[in-house]
C-alpha cells in the first residue's frame, strides 16, 4: 500500500516561501514524476514527503494516516539519493542489510532478501566490495537494493540518474521502470530531464516556483498543455511559441506548434524562412529557421535526411489541427 496525500502542504525557509500551500494525491502503485526547472522546489517537496524537512503548514497523509509529524524512519518510505549516499565503510552486503538491521529483521530473513535483491539487480558478484570499488551504475543499483529490501510503502528518488553518463542513464531508466512494473509499489521520482519524465511516468507533476502547473499522464501533457509554461517544458525539441498577428489570426494571444507538427513543403507553404543551423541526426533533421517574421527562430523537425543547408529558403506548413492556442495569461484556449 502507498497512497500519499498532500493537503495544503507548504514550506518556507525563513521568510522565503518555497512551496505555497499545495494539494496533491499520489495513488497507490503509481509512478509519479516531479519535473520542473532547477530551484522550483522538487527536492524540497520530496524531502517533505520523506520527513527530512518539517512542513510549515498542511498535512501529509500516507495511507490515510496522518504522517505530518512522524519521523522519517517511521514513515515506511525508502529514498534513493542523487549522490547515492552509500555508507563508504560498509560492504555492499552491509549497506543493503543496514535498514533491515535497524528494523531488527532476523539474520536469515536479511540474507534471503539481500540475495534476492542482488540477483534482481545483478549485484551478486559485488556483495563483498566497498562502494568505492564500484562503478557509478553499480553504486546506483546498490542504493536501489538498499531501498528495495525494506519493502517500503513507496520509493522516493531524487534525480537518481543525473550523475551517470548518457548511455548508462538509458539503461538504468529501463531498469527502474521494469522494477516498478514488477513491484507495483508507489514511486515518486524527481528529475529535470523531461525525457525521463515522459518515458517513465504514469503521472507527471509539473512544478514551477513551488506551484503545481499541471498534473497528468505524459500524453495528456503532450497533447493538451494547460499553459505556455507546460507547453514549453514538455516535449523535445521545445514547442514553438508565436505571438503577434499570426496568433491573432487564430484568435489567440499566443499560439504553439511542436517542431514535429510542421511539415517542410516544396512551395506555397503557409510560412517561409531561411535555414539557419541544420542538425542532421540521420533518423530526422532539426532545422532552426530564421526570417519567418513569426519568432526569432522556429524549430522544425523533418523526418529522415532532408538536403537543405544553411541559407536556403524553406517553405513550411503547420498542421492546423495541432496548433495550441493560449490567451494573454498564457492559459490554454480550447
Amino acid at each position: 500500500m502507498g497512497r500519499i496525500t498532500l493537503d495544503k502542504v507548504s514550506k518556507r525557509f525563513g521568510d522565503v516561501e518555497v512551496i505555497p500551500p499545495l494539494d496533491l494525491t499520489i495513488e497507490d502503485g503509481d509512478f509519479t514524476v516531479f519535473v520542473g526547472p532547477s530551484g522550483c522546489g522538487k527536492s524540497t517537496l520530496l524531502r517533505l514527503i520523506a520527513g527530512l524537512e518539517d512542513t510549515s503548514g498542511g498535512q501529509i497523509r500516507i495511507d490515510s494516516q496522518d504522517a505530518t509529524h512522524v519521523p522519517p524512519a517511521k514513515r515506511g518510505l525508502a529514498m534513493v539519493f542523487q549522490s547515492y549516499a552509500l555508507y563508504p565503510h560498509m560492504s555492499v552486503r552491509k549497506n543493503i542489510a543496514f535498514p533491515m538491521k535497524m528494523a531488527g529483521v532476523s539474520e536469515d530473513e536479511q540474507n534471503r532478501r539481500i540475495d534476492a535483491a542482488a540477483k534482481a539487480l545483478n549485484l551478486t558478484d559485488y556483495l563483498d566490495r566497498r562502494p568505492g570499488q564500484l562503478s557509478g551504475g553499480q553504486r546506483q543499483r546498490v542504493a536501489i537494493g538498499r531501498a528495495i529490501v525494506r519493502e517500503p510503502a513507496a520509493f522516493l528518488f531524487d534525480e537518481p540518474l543525473s550523475n551517470l553518463d548518457a548511455a548508462l542513464r538509458v539503461g538504468m531508466r529501463l531498469e527502474i521502470s521494469e522494477l516498478h512494473k514488477r513491484l507495483r509499489t508507489t514511486m515518486i521520482y524527481v528529475t529535470h530531464d523531461q525525457v525521463e519524465a515522459m518515458t517513465m511516468a504514469d503521472k507527471i507533476v509539473v512544478l514551477r516556483a513551488g506551484h503545481i502547473e499541471q498534473v497528468g499522464s505524459p500524453l495528456e501533457l503532450y497533447r493538451a498543455p494547460r499553459n505556455t509554461f507546460v507547453a514549453g517544458f514538455i516535449g523535445s525539441p521545445k514547442m514553438n511559441l508565436i505571438d503577434g498577428p499570426e496568433a491573432a489570426r487564430h484568435g489567440a494571444h499566443t499560439i504553439g506548434i511542436r517542431p514535429e507538427h510542421i511539415d517542410v513543403v516544396e512551395e506555397n507553404g503557409t510560412w517561409q524562412g531561411t535555414v539557419g543551423v541544420a542538425e542532421h541526426l540521420g533518423s530526422d533533421t532539426f532545422f532552426h529557421i530564421h526570417n519567418t517574421g513569426l519568432a526569432e527562430t522556429l524549430t522544425v523537425r523533418a523526418l529522415g535526411e532532408v538536403t537543405l543547408s544553411h541559407g536556403d529558403a524553406i517553405h513550411l506548413s503547420p498542421r492546423a489541427e495541432l496548433i495550441h492556442k493560449f490567451d494573454a495569461q498564457g492559459l490554454r484556449i480550447e
Binding site: L52, P72, Q82, P88, P99, M102
Partner: peptide, 25 residues
Amino acid sequence: GEILEAARMDGASLKEEILYVLTPM
C-alpha cells in the same frame, strides 16, 4: 549530509546514526 539522511530514512535513531554511520566514516 545525505549519507546521514539515508541512515535516518533507513530507520536509524540518532544514536545509531552517530555510532554506525558517522563515527566509522
